[in-house]
């Protein structure tokens, strides 16, 4: 297990290196006139000169030197630079917002799996029955409904019909745990429902495949009840690709969180990114971009490692 973990971590290095290159080159494409725009827009022109701003962004040095000082600062000192707007360290800004997005993501995932796995199982057990048809139609429809539209409808219609609208002022978990959970519940349900569509299809497909295996017939034949066959024998084997799917959906989940944070004014990473883009605060944009990429890579690592818990055949050799 340890050797496997080390090997797996080593394999991350090239991926993370490329990810950092992508982040670096994307943001370094800033054309010169944007610098002028930043000076005009942020109203920092009176305080800093153009040269000073370029120096703050590190644009005055050769590309290679810029890259190494940027990545070196992050790796050695955890220094993501400082915000052009608030002059606070970018790292602090990001890690203050990260837990909120993480909480929203976990809640959405719980909703997604809570919907997808039971419906997927029932769909597979009663293949082509009424429940299966409803479940499948729902899933294929949910793939097409944009999250931001659902979010908008949830804001608009309850307000028109009953005069209620979601609280816009954010309640931190530390102050009022229940209020916080209730506030995040609506965006989490919207996000989770759209995520559940693909997972539901995958659960159904895998259950159908597993339920045809010989060992399932044996389990039935020895007189095991339905619950035991489905949960103990079939589901455990069907879940492995479903878990892989969670890793593949991580980017979709984070992208969706940005939209939900915008609609419901939740101060997470997504809203931080949108605010930073509005102010052209490039150190923050770069920082959020990189952290999101690293987070997805790490989620996929955790997914890989979790196979061992589900599947004893995976011995991490």
């Amino acid at each position: 297990m340890q050797a496997y973990l080390v090997r797996r971590l080593l394999a991350l290095i090239p991926t993370l290196f490329f990810a950092s290159l992508i982040v670096f080159t994307t943001v370094r494409m800033i054309p010169g006139d944007i610098i002028d725009m930043m000076i005009a827009q942020n109203d920092i022109g009176s305080k800093v000169s153009r040269d000073a701003l370029e120096a703050a962004l590190g644009l005055d040095r050769p590309m290679l030197a810029q890259y190494f000082s940027w990545i070196g600062g992050i790796l050695l000192r955890g220094d993501f630079g400082s915000s052009l707007w608030q002059h606070s360290p970018v790292g602090e800004e990001i890690f203050a917002r990260l837990p909120v997005t993480f909480e929203l993501g976990i809640m959405a995932l719980v909703v997604a799996l809570g919907l997808a796995i039971p419906i997927g199982i029932v769909s597979a057990l009663r293949q082509d029955g009424l429940g299966d048809i409803i479940g499948r139609s729902f899933s294929i429809l949910m793939l097409a409904v944009p999250g931001f539209w659902m979010g908008t409808m949830v804001m608009v219609f309850p307000s028109i019909w009953w005069g209620v609208s979601p609280e816009v002022k954010f309640v931190p978990f530390a102050e009022d745990p229940l209020g916080n959970l209730l506030q995040l519940a609506i965006p989490a349900v919207i996000l989770g429902t759209s995520l559940s569509a693909v997972t539901m299809r995958m659960t159904r497909t895998m259950m159908l495949e597993v339920l045809r295996q010989d060992y399932i017939r044996t389990a039935w034949a020895k007189g095991q009840n339905e619950r035991g066959v489905v949960i103990r024998h079939a589901l455990r084997n069907a879940l492995i690709p479903v878990v892989t799917l969670i890793g593949l959906q991580a980017p979709i989940l984070i992208g969706g969180a940005v939209i939900m944070e915008q609609i419901f004014v939740i101060p997470g990473m997504g809203l931080l990114l949108l605010e930073a883009v509005g102010r052209r605060d490039y150190p923050i944009i770069t920082g959020v971009f990189l952290i999101v990429g690293v987070a997805v890579v790490l989620i996929n690592l955790l997914v890989d490692l979790s196979y061992g818990l589900l599947d004893p055949k995976v011995r991490y050799r």
């Binding site: 991926t15 993370l16 290196f17 490329f18 990810a19 290159l21 992508i22 994307t26 943001v27 494409m29 800033i30 054309p31 944007i34 980017p251 979709i252 984070i254 992208g255 940005v258 939209i259 990114l273 949108l274 883009v277 052209r280 944009i285 959020v288 971009f289 999101v292 990429g293 690293v294 997805v296 890579v297 996929n300």
Partner: peptide, 20 residues
């Protein structure tokens, strides 16, 4: 491709649009 796929499409788009 691995590295590229670690970034949500929407976030890449937001960042690039913020630049170009």
């Amino acid at each position: 491709v691995d590295a590229w796929m670690s970034f949500p499409e929407l976030i890449i788009l937001i960042v690039v649009v913020s630049v170009v």
